[in-house]
Design a protein around this nucleic acid. Sequence first.
DNA 1: GCCAATTAAATTGTGCACAATCAAGTTGTA
DNA 2: TACAACTTGATTGTGCACAATTTAATTGGC
Lengths: 148, 148
Amino acid sequence: MLGHVNALLLDNQVCFAVHAAARAMDGVYRRELAELGLTYPQYLVMLVLWERDQVTVKELGAALRLDSGTLSPLLKRLEAAGFVRRERSASDERSVLVRLTEQGTELRQAATRVPGRILEATGLELSEVLELSGTLTRMTRSLTQAVS
Amino acid sequence: MLGHVNALLLDNQVCFAVHAAARAMDGVYRRELAELGLTYPQYLVMLVLWERDQVTVKELGAALRLDSGTLSPLLKRLEAAGFVRRERSASDERSVLVRLTEQGTELRQAATRVPGRILEATGLELSEVLELSGTLTRMTRSLTQAVS
DNA sequence: GCCAATTAAATTGTGCACAATCAAGTTGTA
DNA sequence: TACAACTTGATTGTGCACAATTTAATTGGC
């Protein structure tokens, strides 16, 4: 078994690697998304809406695994920026429907330039990217179950 | 080349995977570190200090790639919790030395139980963990250079 | 020795992510 | 039908992460 010294070093190595990678990626996104006027979390929301316009806050939360504490203010800012509109659902007044504005729809075109730049910045081959994605997805699932 | 539809989906897939993994890991850490009275970023600071007591804020920042905007309040809270002490360096009064208290030193023992639990929660084999770590580290380096 | 340039850490401002709570609305059961 | 139980999204509180700025100290060049 690992002694306590080695265990803490291993922890530092792999878990910190995930943490550091996410932050580094955040940094590149910040630069790339600045001209679109979006933050990365906002960009994620837009990605969902570009795929399927008019979703509830609940559905957004499910897709992005975010709760309303995060989404409410985020959507408020997206609405203030003119990219989305929020409306109470007629069939269930607790629900809020989020829709793209024309401005929000048009933003998709500019956004298509982002992924290529991010992937290029990773310095990874496509095969590495796909394997990484698979491993991370499995790990995330396991981690998520560990706290539920 | 990828069309814009596929590109945005791929982006969602791999970059979101990193983002989601980091957040899921944060969640598991939150649970595991609660009994130690630490947050994950605080735990990272303690890891550095357990390896080498008495470091400057600058050195902490370099090790963890955090700036003083993040570290200052974080260290302030660690000090308030009784785990560390901050003192101005006599040789350079701009520098602040961070040292473990006795309480902070003793915390290491309890902390040794954390890594095993985290790694177990990942559901990955050790070989997968090591490969993942390697890929992420390379990617982080590349991403970091992309914004500098 | 003097002063401009640089450095270290703290502070201010902004946006996120989560836990806990709340108000309003909907559903399920007796 | 009435009401308890549950759901939805907003709000409150806390801690982080980064950009920009500030204050004080140190260094480097003349």
